[in-house]
Amino acid sequence: MSIWSESTQSRAKEILAKYPEKRSAVMPLLYLAMAEDGWLTEEGMTEVAEWVGITPAQVQSVASFYTMFKRERTGKYLVSLCTSISCMLLGSDDVLAAIEDESGVPHGETDEEGLISVEHAECIGACGGAVACQVNYELIEGLTAEKGRELVRWLKKARPEAVNTDEMQELFGGQRSFEWALPSDVGAAGPFPAFEPYGTATKDPQ
C-alpha cells in the first residue's frame, strides 16, 4: 500500500518505465520522495524500497552516499555556498560568514522555523562566476557578502513558493561563467533540483 498520492504514484511509474532495470530508478524516486515530504524521510526511503524491490537498508546506503538526499529535516530554502578553490580565491569564506550571520544559521544546520538551511558546498560548477551560490540548487553567480545578506533577507521576507535561478541572478548576481541562455520558467519549492520528470519542478514560480 503506497503512502504516496495518486499523482506521485503515476509519476513513479513513468520514472520506472525509463529504465531497463528497476533499481536504476532509485535516485529519481528519492527526489520524488523528497518533493513529497520536503526532505528524505525514513518513510520515503521505505516507500522507494518497495517501488524498486530492494531493502530499506539498501536504499539508505545509496541515499546516504550522495550529498543531495537530505535525510534530516531541511529548510524550505537550502542555501549552498561554494567554498572550493576558485570561489575561495574570490572570497567565498567571507560570503559564507555573511550568510551565516544574516540568517543566524551556521553551516550544516537549519533554522527553528524550518525556513532556511545553510551549507558550504564543494564545487558547483560555476567557477567563472565565483563566488557561486545555490538556493535549492538554483544558481546565483558572482555573489558578494552584501548581496548574500540581501538574498537571505529576501528569502525571509518574500518567501517565494519556489526559487528560480534567473530571477535570483537578476536580483543578487554579478559576474557569470558565461552568457546564460533564455530564462527557465520553473523553480524549486524545496531542497531538491527542479526537474520536471522527477516531479520536483514548480511551474511559473513567480
Binding site: 543531495m68 541562455a181 533540483p193 527542479a194 520536471e196 520528470p197 519542478a201
Partner: peptide, 19 residues
C-alpha cells in the same frame, strides 16, 4: 538502442534545457 545522459544533480537548469 538505449542511451543515458547522466548530469550532475547540481545542474538542474542544464538538465531542464537538455530534457
Amino acid at each position: 538502442h538505449h542511451a543515458f545522459v547522466y548530469i550532475r544533480g547540481e545542474y538542474p537548469k542544464p538538465a531542464r534545457r537538455l530534457q
